[in-house]
């Protein structure tokens, strides 16, 4: 199940594990990425708090935690090659995996159509 936030993150939810990244729209807006900082595995994230940082040549942007949960895995590949994220932000460019505290809250997030309308 693919969900989105108004802050341009996507989540692919499988049971209580959500894979999180930034949307194609966000990646296009940011342009070439040069530095990515991810949360530590085991970190407990609160919805709306800064979870990761993506930096383009020009700016640093926070990526917020979409829901409460614990980080179970991070994508070291995008840290090693930030430019690689831009090529496939909603696939190989995922940032981290989150074990959701309350997976039912996924229902409150935007679906693909609602997000498409938001960025149209």
């Amino acid at each position: 199940m693919l969900k989105f936030t108004q802050d341009h993150e996507w989540l692919k939810v499988d049971g209580d594990i959500a894979t999180v990244g930034i949307t194609q729209h966000a990646a296009t807006q940011l342009g070439d990425l040069v530095f990515i900082e991810l949360p530590k595995v085991g970190a407990k994230l609160k919805k709306g708090a800064a979870a990761a940082v993506v930096e383009s040549v020009k700016t640093a942007s926070d990526v917020y935690a979409p829901l409460d949960g614990e980080v179970t895995e991070v994508n070291q590949q995008v840290v090693d090659d930030p430019a690689g994220l831009s090529a496939d932000p909603q696939g190989k460019g995922w940032l981290y995996k989150l074990k959701l505290d309350r997976s039912a809250e996924v229902a409150d997030l935007l679906d693909e159509d609602a997000y498409a309308k938001l960025t149209a």
Binding site: D7, E9, A26, V54, T59, A60, S61, D62, V63, Y64
Partner: peptide, 8 residues
């Protein structure tokens, strides 16, 4: 995600 240098 937020852009910290938003100019309008």
């Amino acid at each position: 995600m937020s852009n910290s240098h938003d100019n309008t």
